[in-house]
C-alpha cells in the first residue's frame, strides 16, 4: 500500500471562481494528478460552488478512481488543510492550488507546501496577476493558467526540489513593524 498524496484546491471565501473548479475537477486534470502519484483532490469550493462541484465530480469520476472531496468554507481557516497537503509521517507532500488571494498564498508559503497560484482573470482591476507573476519570478510559486493546469502540476514538482523558506530572511525593515510603530508612538528606548 503506497502512501497518500493530497492536492488541495481553494477558491477563497469572497468571490466565486467556477472556471477553476471546472478546470480542476475534470477528467484531464484527475488523470494528470494520478500520473503524478496523487491519491486525493480536496476542494474548498465557496458558498455557491457546491452544485457546480458535485456536477463536475460526477462527470470526472466516471473516468478516474482518484478520491475527490469538497467543502464550502472552513471558518477555522485553511491552515489545517494546508498542513494535510504538506504531508508527514504517512503522507507524501502534495500541492496546494489557490485562487490568488493573499491570505491563502501566505498560509501555503508559511506551511512550506508547493503552491500553484491561479489568478481569477475575470475580476476587475486584476492586481492578483501581478502578485502571481512577481512571486513566480522569484520562484516562490508556480503561476498557473487555467487552460494549462496539468502543466502547472508538473512545474510544481520542480518547485518542490528548490523549496524556499517564508518569510525570506531580512525581508522587512531593520527593526520590523515594531520599529515603525515605536517611531510613531515616540517610544525612545
Amino acid at each position: 500500500m503506497s502512501s497518500s498524496k493530497l492536492c488541495f484546491l481553494t477558491v477563497g471565501a469572497t468571490a466565486s471562481f467556477s472556471e477553476l473548479i471546472e478546470a480542476a475537477v475534470s477528467p484531464a486534470f484527475l488523470t494528470a494528478l494520478e500520473s503524478q502519484g496523487y491519491t486525493e483532490l480536496s476542494v474548498q469550493y465557496g458558498q455557491d460552488g457546491q452544485q457546480l462541484f458535485e456536477k463536475c465530480k460526477t462527470v470526472a469520476q466516471g473516468t478516474s478512481k482518484l478520491k475527490v472531496t469538497g467543502f464550502d468554507l472552513d471558518k477555522l481557516g485553511l491552515g489545517k488543510h494546508m498542513r494535510r497537503a504538506k504531508g508527514g509521517k504517512d503522507a507524501d507532500e502534495g500541492v496546494v492550488i489557490s485562487h490568488a488571494g493573499s491570505g491563502s498564498i501566505l498560509d501555503a508559503l508559511r506551511t512550506g507546501v508547493p503552491l500553484i497560484v491561479v489568478p481569477n482573470e475575470t475580476l476587475l482591476d486584476n492586481h492578483q496577476v501581478e502578485l502571481a507573476e512577481a512571486l513566480a519570478e522569484q520562484e516562490y510559486v508556480v503561476h498557473g493558467r487555467l487552460p494549462q493546469l496539468p502543466k502547472a502540476l508538473a512545474d510544481a514538482e520542480k518547485l518542490r526540489q528548490r523549496a524556499k523558506e517564508w518569510p525570506p530572511v531580512n525581508s522587512g525593515p531593520e527593526r520590523g513593524l515594531k520599529g515603525i510603530l515605536d517611531d510613531e508612538m515616540g517610544f525612545l528606548d
Binding site: A13, T14, G101, G103, R110, G172, L177
Partner: peptide, 13 residues
C-alpha cells in the same frame, strides 16, 4: 478577507 489575513500575518510575524 485578504486584508485581515495580511494584517494578522504581519502582526504574528
Amino acid at each position: 478577507g485578504g486584508h485581515t489575513a495580511e494584517m494578522l500575518s504581519m502582526l504574528t510575524r
